[in-house]
Design a protein around this nucleic acid. Structure first.
Lengths: 204, 204
DNA sequence: TTCTAAAATTGAGTCAATTCTGTTTTTGTG
DNA sequence: CACAAAAACAGAATTGACTCAATTTTAGAA
């Protein structure tokens, strides 16, 4: 199945995503009309709905790309963490946060998060939940690594701790994207302050 | 200004909220058409928009009532907390969680949360953020109380800890409402497991 | 009681997402 | 190459939230 039909399909997918990404940035998610995306991508409205269940799923495809990049960048830190618990956490979470506004605006994040809670069973809703879980797992992996290196006490409940750290960061990030004027530096400082409590508790 | 006009206003407010609450429960948030709410409340569509800026704000009014009840119930625990850090936290957060599905279905929570991130500057968005902050403050108050009672170390950063605990609970609650089959008991167990790490770290 | 300005209500109209049905394109087979 | 079935496309029609100009109701003064 790599004939003309498959090639056209891939090409249309790409054109739709590119048109949508440009328009979401330009006009905002709400401001980007499906009709306009269709025109820009040189397909009809009906075709867009043939490729994506709804407007949210188009945004979803873009968010997925972003988060997967972040997950990739995080792998390096887990493999070779700084030799200090506080720095290790700060480095990993820092990567997540610093990358977050690369391709997505705050408004796009707000929409993506909203859709994922609104329609948890839609394709995007499920994908978003899976991405959250992957991030949680990566934090857990870091903790396990730090335990293996003897930097974190062995009797700490690693999985629960990892989820706690992710949940806190995620909630702080949600509040961050809700306030247009909030700065990344403040966000990182606030998270560091909270994690300090944990770091003191789990260090050897 | 407590003449006929004011009484009719209050009455229409009540009728709209009652009609909406019933329909949201029955047909779900999306399934409840403004037209139907209007008919049930015996007002016109235009009037509803005279009272509420948008559909989300109607849901917002219902959510506010629920959360304010919860805040009220929490006051008792802060004033007289169990003499054990783990139990104190579990009791307060338990009240939040157990009350949460009294008037609101999971679907209504999902919608409310979605709207509050989608439109953080709408009346409801701001009200929701204020409610979150109020809950955070109540947890902080509990911690301050426990510190005053000598059950929590004085050198712990209480405000940061309170926010950490709230954020974690809130995120767990979000995941809880996203999965229709999730049970309250499991949610409480999972949160208890996470808080155990903190309790061990902050006790005297 | 009567009248006028302010406040509130009404419902037809607008707008954008989504659906639906008829048409066109691609594929595989003879 | 010709053709029938399957897949994909197009864009008009539908749907439901929200707006707005015209009408009705209330308040307060004379």
């Amino acid at each position: 199945m790599s004939g003309l039909r498959a090639r056209q399909k891939a090409d249309r997918h790409r054109r739709i995503i590119e048109a949508a990404a440009a328009l979401f940035r330009d006009a905002g998610y709400e401001g980007a009309k499906i009709e306009t995306i269709a025109a820009q991508a040189e397909v009809s409205v009906g075709t867009i709905y043939n490729y994506y269940q709804n407007k949210g799923d188009i945004l979803g495809a873009i968010v997925s790309m972003e988060v997967n990049e972040v997950l990739n960048a995080g792998r390096g830190v887990v493999a070779n963490p700084p030799a200090n618990v506080g720095d290790a956490l700060d480095t990993l979470l820092g990567i997540y946060i610093e990358h977050s506004l690369h391709y997505l605006s705050k408004e796009m994040w707000r929409q993506a998060m909203a859709i994922s809670t609104q329609l948890p069973d839609s394709p995007f809703g499920q994908a978003y939940t899976a991405l959250d879980r992957a991030l949680t797992e990566q934090i857990r992996a870091l903790i396990a690594r730090l335990q293996a290196l003897g930097l974190v006490r062995r009797d700490i409940d690693g999985p629960a701790l990892g989820e706690l750290i992710f949940n806190n960061m995620n909630m702080m990030f949600i509040e961050f994207v809700k306030r247009e004027e909030a700065r990344i530096a403040e966000l990182r400082t606030a998270i560091r302050r909270q994690n300090r409590i944990l770091v003191a508790a789990i260090g050897v």
